[in-house]
Lab assay of single mutants.
Amino acid sequence: MSRVPSPPPPAEMSSGPVAESWCYTQIKVVKFSYMWTINNFSFCREEMGEVIKSSTFSSGANDKLKWCLRVNPKGLDEESKDYLSLYLLLVSCPKSEVRAKFKFSILNAKGEETKAMESQRAYRFVQGKDWGFKKFIRRDFLLDEANGLLPDDKLTLFCEVSVVQDSVNISGQNTMNMVKVPECRLADELGGLWENSRFTDCCLCVAGQEFQAHKAILAARSPVFSAMFEHEMEESKKNRVEINDVEPEVFKEMMCFIYTGKAPNLDKMADDLLAAADKYALERLKVMCEDALCSNLSVENAAEILILADLHSADQLKTQAVDFINYHASDVLETSGWKSMVVSHPHLVAEAYRSLASAQCPFLGPPRKRLKQS
């Protein structure tokens, strides 16, 4: 649940008159999402009104509101027999009622949201009550392989729920002597030191190019640089560091992050930047690179990204790559990247197969709970 924001200063709310007192009302909304995959969808019983329910879910471990999704594969009634019906059901509720908006969509073979439908307002739910769409999607369109909505005969539904909580009022009075504290510009100011090479005390040599930097900042941000300058190493004695395995453009992006906490060109060089972040123990930059690479996972590059993640101990990226390969196994196994990995990294192939087997055979063990970014 997000923290209630402070109200904007009255002088910034309007260029008009300023009242002596004010009130700011925040209506709290808890948002969460749920993904439900139905394997072997074409084998569902086709009687009209037949119901399939998901397991229950909530916004978190401490949330007492429990929900589930309900599907009628062949419609709810005679009117909707040519459609799939989809509903959000409130299973248990400690209150007399709650209000919530919802959005349903289908994830296609690429994991993209399609055929989205959402409620136009927050509906009133009581325990045992459901709301949804009797005519969510035509069955003939859903079952047509050309539309790519049932890869490997799996129907994957994605649901986003927004639950309306209580409202909170914050009130106060205006004073004539309003003090406005300026925003912190530390990142910009440190970035200026790097860009202008002011007050530098060490030189970093990268592929024949020299960059002036500040030992204190490098040591504070990177345990690797800290070790170089702290001990009686040649880098500490000469205040000069030779860097041979990072390209200059990648190095500059890494230094921008060290000084400012930002990497504006990360998406263009996420793979190389991940390697640099791993070498210099820049954990936050490493996770930022993992996130960017996750966003660009595809059938063509899944094997290469899995190898990269394994090489640099990028655990979150590795998990996402394995899950992606499992979901698109029939396509990924035909790529040149996968065939190369079979020869060069057989242990990763074995890991992917083990994960695929456990996903398809849940009876082999208890269900695993899916539970950071600093």
Rank of each mutant, 00 (worst) to 15 (best):
W36G: 01
D291L: 14
S222V: 15
A11R: 08
D323C: 12
D272F: 05
R138V: 12
A263C: 09
Q127M: 13
F32T: 09
H347T: 02
D201N: 06
R221E: 15
P366W: 12
L76P: 15
P151A: 12
V250G: 11
D77Y: 06
S21F: 08
L190Y: 07
L297K: 01
L308R: 05
E351K: 01
G192N: 07
N265M: 07
M117N: 05
Y280G: 00
L157D: 00
Y327K: 05
Q165D: 06
E113T: 06
T25K: 00
S344D: 08
K279Q: 01
M1Y: 00
N177S: 02
N244Q: 06
E46F: 09
C93A: 08
T156A: 07
M1I: 00
Y123M: 07
K279H: 08
L149S: 02
C159L: 13
Q212A: 14
H231P: 11
A227P: 01
L89E: 02
S119V: 10
G365Y: 15
L88V: 10
K268G: 10
T37N: 06
V71Q: 13
I27H: 10
D291G: 05
V224I: 15
A109D: 15
T25A: 01
I305Y: 03
G111I: 08
H345E: 04
P9N: 03
Q320D: 08
H231M: 15
A207I: 10
N244L: 04
C203T: 12
I52Y: 05
D152W: 10
S96H: 11
A187E: 05
K154L: 11
S119M: 01
N239K: 01
G337M: 11
C23N: 06
H312D: 10
E12H: 08
K103D: 08
T335L: 01
P7S: 06
S226T: 12
S330K: 11
L333W: 11
F43K: 12
F57C: 02
Q212V: 11
E112I: 13
H347Y: 05
K369G: 04
P362W: 13
L371D: 07
A314T: 06
W67E: 00
K103P: 00
Y83D: 05
T25G: 00
V29Q: 05
A207M: 13
A359I: 00
P17N: 05
K110Q: 10
D130P: 04
A109M: 08
L84N: 09
I52E: 05
I170M: 03
M35T: 04
K238M: 01
E97N: 14
F102H: 00
S14Y: 13
S313L: 07
G148E: 04
S197C: 15
F211M: 11
A219Q: 10
H214E: 00
A122R: 05
T114M: 07
W131E: 00
V71C: 10
K154P: 07
A359R: 01
K31Y: 02
L149N: 09
F229R: 15
P5I: 06
F225Q: 00
I258S: 05
L155K: 01
L274Y: 06
L86G: 15
A11E: 02
E232W: 14
S33K: 12
N147E: 07
S55H: 03
P10W: 12
S92F: 07
K81T: 12
A219P: 00
V206S: 13
N169H: 05
D130W: 00
S222K: 00
P346R: 06
P182H: 05
S167W: 11
E97S: 10
E195D: 04
S55W: 12
Q173S: 07
L333F: 05
V206N: 08
N196R: 02
K95A: 11
P7T: 06
G337F: 10
R99D: 14
P9T: 04
D267H: 03
A219D: 13
Y87E: 00
W338T: 00
V18H: 08
L193R: 05
E50T: 02
L371R: 12
D153W: 08
N108L: 15
Y83M: 06
V71M: 01
A276D: 03
K339F: 04
A314V: 06
V349I: 11
A219S: 08
E145G: 06
E46L: 08
I38L: 05
V51D: 07
A292P: 06
A357W: 06
A100D: 00
I307Q: 09
F141G: 05
A314Q: 12
Q360P: 14
L150W: 11
L157A: 07
I137V: 13
M288T: 01
G191N: 13
V30A: 04
N174Q: 03
V30N: 12
L311T: 06
Q212R: 12
K129D: 11
N39M: 08
P73R: 12
W22F: 04
G128C: 13
R99K: 05
S167P: 01
A100P: 01
W36I: 04
P346K: 01
P94S: 07
N62F: 05
Q127V: 09
N326W: 14
S340E: 02
L311Q: 05
G111F: 14
P346V: 03
A350T: 11
R240G: 01
M117E: 05
T156K: 05
D82A: 05
N196S: 13
A350L: 05
S15H: 07
F41V: 00
D310W: 05
L317R: 00
K101E: 11
I217S: 05
S80G: 07
D245H: 03
S54A: 12
E304F: 06
S21C: 04
M254H: 00
G49T: 04
S298Y: 06
K318P: 00
C256G: 03
P9W: 09
M176T: 01
K95C: 12
E47K: 03
E195P: 10
V332G: 00
C256S: 02
V179S: 07
C361N: 14
L65V: 15
Q26E: 05
N72W: 11
K115F: 13
N326M: 10
W22C: 01
L142K: 14
N62P: 10
P5F: 06
E232P: 12
K66R: 13
P182I: 12
F57S: 01
M269I: 06
I325V: 06
A303P: 06
S313A: 08
K101S: 15
S2Y: 07
S295A: 15
P223I: 03
L193Q: 04
H345M: 06
D323L: 13
K154C: 09
L150E: 08
K180H: 06
S358E: 07
P151D: 09
L155S: 14
V18S: 07
R70H: 13
S80T: 07
